[in-house]
Computed example of a mutant assay.
Amino acid sequence: MAAPETPLRTRTARAEDGDALGALDRATWSPLHAVVPAPQPPYAPFFDDRHRPEDHLVAEYADGTGKTNVIVGYVRLGRPTPLACNAHVRQIQGLAVAAEARGRGVARALLRAAMAETVRRGGRRITLRVLGHNAPARALYASEGFAVEGVLPGEFFLDGRYVDDVFMGRLLTE
């Protein structure tokens, strides 16, 4: 892992990032944010027809040599529906940060990059869904201007209890 003073960079994912992103996704799986079971081998490829490299932004630190960058997080942006009348909306459909990079602003940088990318692609609004018991994520989203727009009470039964599905969103342009 790079030193904390190494600048963080965000960029669009590339096809060759798939293995690193798959490993990161598996390492960060948690019932705090996942509604699917923990991944088991054989692992599916990270990128597929529905989740292409260009739908992901990655966060990376230089490894200290200046030659290699270490991916420490990603955010997946998608369209909530295929409808033309909804094309101005993007949805965050996944966000993960490596354990060793948490507390360094990586998730916030990815969130801000996702909002900027949404605007760059002509979007006006961004949404996401977060589990009700994921207080750290909900606080981050709220601090970046996301508001709770709906709650599906007890939508998921996870780890022996019912958990709310919280819908959050924000307008990006006036």
Score class of each variant (00 low, 15 high):
R50V: 10
P39Q: 14
Y61L: 13
H133M: 06
T127F: 00
R26S: 09
M1V: 12
S30W: 02
V35L: 10
F157V: 11
F47D: 10
A15K: 12
A62D: 15
H88C: 10
V130T: 07
G78F: 03
R138S: 04
D55C: 06
A15E: 15
A142T: 04
R124G: 14
L110I: 02
R120G: 03
R112I: 03
V72W: 04
I92S: 02
A96F: 08
V148W: 06
A62C: 11
H33K: 05
P153H: 08
F146T: 01
L131E: 04
C85T: 14
C85Y: 12
Q91W: 00
G123H: 04
A23V: 08
F146E: 00
G123Q: 05
Q93F: 06
R138G: 02
Q40H: 11
G94F: 10
V72E: 05
R108S: 09
M1H: 12
D17A: 06
L8F: 08
Y141R: 05
H51Q: 12
P41Y: 09
D25S: 15
L8W: 10
D165Q: 00
A113R: 03
V97M: 07
A99H: 13
V97L: 06
T173P: 12
L83M: 14
W29K: 05
L8E: 08
V119R: 14
F46S: 04
E5I: 10
A96T: 02
Y141C: 01
